Structure formats: C-alpha cells, structure tokens
Simulated assay, not measured.
Amino acid sequence: MADAALLSPRDPAWTEALDRVRHDIYHIPEYVRLDAGLTGATPVAYRYDEAGRVFLLPLLLRPVPGTDLQDAISPYGYPGPVGSADAAFWSRATATMTEVLCTEGVVTAFARLHPLLPGCREVLAGSGTVVQHGETVSIDLTLGPDELWSQTHRSHRNQINKAKRAGVEIVFDDWDLFDDWIGTYHATMRRVGATDFYFFGADHFHRLRAAVDKHVHLAVATLDGQVLGGNLFFEYAGMMHTHLQSTADGPIHYADKLLYHEVRMWGRARNNHIYHLGGGVGGTADSLFRYKSQFAAGRQRFHTWRVITDRGNYEKLSGPPTPESMTGRFPPYR
C-alpha cells in the first residue's frame, strides 16, 4: 500500500521520514518554517511512502494573486527531493505528488535540486522539466591542507597571506559580534544593488540562529577591533554551506579570501567531508562563480525542476506550456 500526504512542520512524520534518508539542513522542518515566514507562505513537505521506502520534498505554498489557487516553490537554498534510491519508486512518488498538489489547488511546483545529494533526475525530467543552470563549487575537506592550498588560485593565496600579514583575524561563533556582522551584510546588499527581499532584518537572523541552533555558525573577520565582514554558514551531516557572506564598506584587507580559507580549515578539523560554496547568480558562470571557483576544483551541476500540477488552470493563467515557458522564468504568470 502506498501513502501520500502534505505534512505541516509540526507533524512528526516529517522528521521521521528524514531519519530514514540522507538529507541536508534545507530539508528540516525548522528551516522550512523559518523561510516561509519571510514571505507569508505556508510550509509543507510532500511525503510518499511505499513498502518501507520514503520520498520527501519540502515546499512553500503561496497564493496566486487574483485567484483562489496556489503554487509551490522550494525554500531558499537547495531543498530538492530526497528519498530511497529506486527510479521506479521515484516515478510513482512524483506522479502521485502531481495529483496531491492538484487536489490542494496548486497549479505549479518549482524546486531547486541539491547539487551534492544524488537523486533520480531522469525521473524528475519525465514528470516535469529539469533545467541545468550551471555549476556550483565545492571544497573536498577530506584532502590534506597542502592539497587544499595547491587547489587555491595563486592570486587568492597571495591575498590570504596579505590578510594575515595585515593582522586580520577570524573569530568563530562569537555571537556578541552577530549584530555587527548583520550591519556588514546590509552594507554588502546595498553595494550590489540587491532587491528588497535580500535585506533580511536582524530579527530574521536571530530567529535563524534559534531555529537551527547548533547547525549554524558565524565566522567574523576583525582587525584592531573592527568587524570587516563575516561568513554565516551551515554545518549538517558532514556537509557545510556558505549561507551568506559579507564585507564592510571601506578597506577590508582581503578579509573575504581569508574567511573562506579559515572556514574550510575549521570544517576539516571537525571532520566534515565537503564545503559547498554555491555558484554564480542564478547558477550562471559570472564573476561570483569565477571568484568561488578559484578556491577549489570541486564542481557540481545545479538544476531546477518545474512541474505543472493543474494543466487546466495553468493554461488559464499562462496559455499552453511551451519549451520557452518551461525553461525560462517559472511559473511564467508570476
């Protein structure tokens, strides 16, 4: 017998499913609930069970303006589907997901796939559209310090050494510096012209720390008592992810390079096996990607998955689906 449901973060079946499959911090209910609060969305997880196997996908349900419909999107980060490794099982799980979401008035679903966790991507392509956006960068923390250093581009190595000679220090988990770091984050967002969404308030950051507790860490770069920037990062099940990195306005003495270097050494010392830096904006091979790529040789492909769960209402909103509408901005009615 198969069973499928949409779970709330309070439902113990969500955590129980995660106990049975390899997953990351982006899948836990505390993280998904916090992320939903940024936009007023409803946090849920689609769970499918069959013969001792389980499939789970966290989603945020959002009202479609001007209608009584909803659509679904991933939380921020990489919370793609996770589940028992069986292509036929995934096929049944995804087909049933379409039915369940349609019954709940959900028109489309959009999910960011996890670059580090294996999944049945060919099955997802059969039940929707999978789009490859580019590559992400990762650091193999099982390598020795000399190999990690040799994989670092010579310009980054030179600037890391300059930061050390200038007296820049990296402090870990001194939460008395959290508000100062938040100030550097907002300064960074102003410099890059970020949209309003990315100007997370201090209250959000403090709720994030409370929600995921021991899995979030803060590395802060200081010089003569001044905060130059920092790296807010996750550590979960041997995987590390930079969540947000920032630098203050003014001279920073290459503190950004030293931050990445010291965070990877910290992670290696704690027996983590991979540090995921992410990619460029929108998964493109832009200057941000090139900057990250000069820290390590690890590369993973980044994909998104797009599904029409209610074709009739989708066509009322956007017309018949086309290859362009399925691979471009999705859903197109947004």
Rank of each mutant, 00 (worst) to 15 (best):
A187S: 11
L117Q: 07
Y31I: 00
F110E: 07
A237E: 15
G119R: 14
D140M: 02
D249L: 03
H303W: 13
V107S: 09
P118R: 14
A2G: 04
T94F: 06
Y236T: 09
A255M: 00
H217V: 04
Y333H: 02
V54Y: 01
V123M: 01
L7A: 03
P320M: 15
H27M: 07
G66W: 09
L218P: 07
L244S: 07
G238Y: 13
A237Y: 07
D71Q: 03
P75G: 00
D3A: 13
C120G: 08
D213N: 15
R92Y: 08
W266K: 11
H276W: 05
R270G: 01
D71T: 06
G183P: 10
H204F: 14
G37C: 03
S127Q: 15
Y333W: 10
V227Y: 00
L116A: 04
F200R: 12
P323V: 05
D68I: 03
H204K: 06
A297M: 12
E104P: 05
H241W: 15
T129A: 02
T108A: 00
A95E: 14
T309R: 02
R10W: 10
P81G: 08
T242E: 12
I139F: 04
W175G: 11
H23E: 01
P251E: 03
D11I: 02
Y185N: 05
A255Q: 00
T129K: 04
R154I: 06
C102L: 09
A13H: 14
M189A: 01
A211G: 06
H23W: 03
E50K: 10
P12E: 15
K316F: 03
H133L: 02
V123H: 02
Y31R: 04
P332F: 07
D256C: 04
V137N: 08
E262L: 00
D174V: 10
A88H: 14
P332I: 11
G201S: 15
T42I: 13
I28G: 00
A72R: 04
R165H: 15
A51I: 05
D86I: 05
E147H: 15
V192D: 12
W181E: 00
G225E: 06
R299N: 01
L244Y: 14
H241C: 03
M97I: 13
N161K: 12
F200N: 11
R191C: 05
G183K: 06
I274V: 15
Q300L: 05
R270K: 13
L6Q: 01
A248M: 00
H27I: 09
D180M: 04
G267K: 08
I182L: 07
T108M: 05
H206G: 03
D196A: 13
M97F: 09
I73W: 10
V32N: 12
T152H: 07
V131S: 05
L6H: 07
T284M: 09
D196H: 12
T327D: 09
G250F: 01
H153K: 15
P65M: 09
G328M: 00
T15G: 12
T184I: 04
Q70S: 12
G144Y: 09
L56S: 06
W181Q: 03
L277T: 02
D174W: 02
